[in-house]
Design a protein around this nucleic acid. Structure first.
Lengths: 324, 324
DNA sequence: CTGAAAGCGCTAACAT
DNA sequence: ATGTTAGCGCTTTCAG
């Protein structure tokens, strides 16, 4: 690969001049500019971004840590983040933590060593402790860690909307399936709202939490199955993620429960799958794209020394489709 | 952040020695090593990977270009690739091309400028031409470009298995939905097999290709709808990707066709969705994980100057579930 | 066993 | 308007 030196030699100038032309800095005579540009062209010169990053101590890369992009929600999120970053000349280094604590920690170290300009945390199993000394542009999804800015949807509102819909539709015994609440995510507000609303209307409730891993499909399925066996009269379920809502749908089908006739189902997230396969899923819509954009922008602000909003809460709305 | 110099000063040695301790090269007395290690510890030293990469002209990063990780197939593929790369101390820079030709080209340039150690191409709209001068560790999925190594499943076999199953199940009029064949992907062999097998048994066929973008959901849906309207007697469909098979399933449901009673359906890929939602999808299984591993290994081989296999074809098998 | 010094490609003071 | 020079943090000859 041609270096800046090759270009300089070919154009009969010094590397400084080439650098100036390339970066459009300082005064350059038209004649010189033309010569340099031509030399670049002829040599098909591309600057070594590694060298530039090294010098500036800034890589134009953002690290993105998610549980896994196999999960359609995070796949969509990652896509939106990458798109917006790309529009701003930024790249994304992707890290699938599988919600493994050790891996997550290693990733943070790795990203810092690689001088990424910021970290978007969509996965959190780490003790908050671990972040204490992390002085770095960072933004989290659905988790509050010290004073780091965070992105969330209006979880409580979402929980309310979902639960109220089920009750309004006549459900008498509600189930709720959520993350392991120990993880202390902001999404736990969905559960809080569920409890509040159900309490207010005096309907019976059953709750199950996924294990901390959350993606143990078999484990989840088994738990859901047990739930229905123990409480065969459940007639409404609010699940805190669309993805797991599909497990519920599935188990209902297998146990002969018709949706929405016997059991009504509401998810959360509004992933595109919800309107891919029949029956279309009733769910709480989070504005994934806007949230992704905000995450990237929040990193940019920190890079540029602009004080970012700490609390970035986005409105949700109910999307009623065919499962209620 | 502490640099190697800080460590050297603190330990009372030179940077050379610190480097040697860190990289485990050359002879170091136990006493010195201990001193250095301690200084590292105390300063919480992490080497600047950017500097190392710059010096070595090697970033330990692999670029991955896919249409989009929102698509569950590519989400799964990306996850597998990232996992395997991670196990080998490599990182993944993710690029969603959206099958946009300009973006794809820019990505390749960007990746080269950033000195990624190799590129995994899971997206190809570029003219083969563009790659002519690309002397770089590279591997493609399902596309043959010059002598670059490629990964594919046994597409022809898969097409045979799918089509034969449909015929054996008694289908009299088969439809096939595939990529735009102009893209000249190796996956077109699936279509070839479909044509061959259908011809052999003398069953009627209908074929539609997606547009070159391929992810235009509405466009696809419309095309599928039209197909059924024009040929209401279609009783078996082989779709060259699971993802689009769901569109077919959906349109069948909406037009009152029961699957598998009225229409039998076979997909391709075996994404995990296939066994998430009822009815479980009959499909052709590609060993995604093994293929991902092979892709990464193929890059590694090229980096290390080992001549990689050019043709990496993986066996497929039929997974019969509930749509046939 | 350890140190001195050069250099990776680029940018940015500081001349001129 | 252009050139000279130093230096980013690290690795690696080459000496000792």
């Amino acid at each position: 690969m041609a270096t800046i030196k090759d270009v300089a030699t070919k154009a009969g100038v010094t590397v400084t001049t080439v650098s100036r032309v390339f970066n459009n800095r300082g005064y350059i005579s038209d004649a010189t500019r033309k010569k340099v540009l031509q030399a670049m062209e002829e040599l098909n010169y591309r600057p070594n971004e590694l060298a530039r990053s090294f010098y500036k101590n800034r890589s134009n890369i953002i690290g993105l840590i998610v549980p896994t992009v196999s999960n359609p929600f995070f796949g969509q999120l990652a896509t939106c983040i990458e798109n917006f970053a790309y529009d701003n000349k930024y790249k994304i280094l992707i890290c699938n933590s599988n919600l493994d604590q050790a891996k997550e920690k290693e990733y943070v170290e790795m990203l810092k060593s690689n001088k990424v300009d910021g970290i978007i945390m969509g996965s959190h199993t780490l003790d908050v402790e671990e972040f204490k000394n992390l002085d770095y542009p960072i933004v989290t999804f659905d988790r509050k860690i010290y004073d780091f800015p965070f992105i969330r949807s209006d979880n409580y509102k979402g929980g309310e909307l979902a639960t109220e819909l089920l009750i309004q539709k006549g459900c008498k015994k509600l189930a709720h399936i959520c993350n392991n609440l120990e993880l202390n995510m902001l999404g736990n507000k969905r559960t809080e709202a569920f409890v509040d609303v159900a309490g207010k209307y005096g309907v019976q409730t059953v709750m199950i939490e996924t294990d901390t891993i959350g993606f143990n499909r078999q484990g989840n399925d088994l738990a859901i199955q047990n739930m229905f066996e123990k409480h065969p009269d459940i007639d409404g379920v609010f699940v805190s993620s669309d993805f797991i809502a599909y497990s519920v749908m599935n188990i209902c089908t297998m146990s002969g429960r018709k949706i929405p006739d016997d059991v009504k189902l509401v998810g959360y997230d509004d992933i595109f799958l919800g309107s891919l396969v029949k029956p279309y899923l009733t769910t709480i819509h989070q504005p994934i794209e806007t949230m992704a954009q905000c995450a990237v922008q929040t990193i940019f602000n920190q890079i540029e020394g602009i004080r970012p909003n700490v609390d970035n809460t986005f409105p949700v709305h109910l999307v009623e489709r065919e499962t209620t």
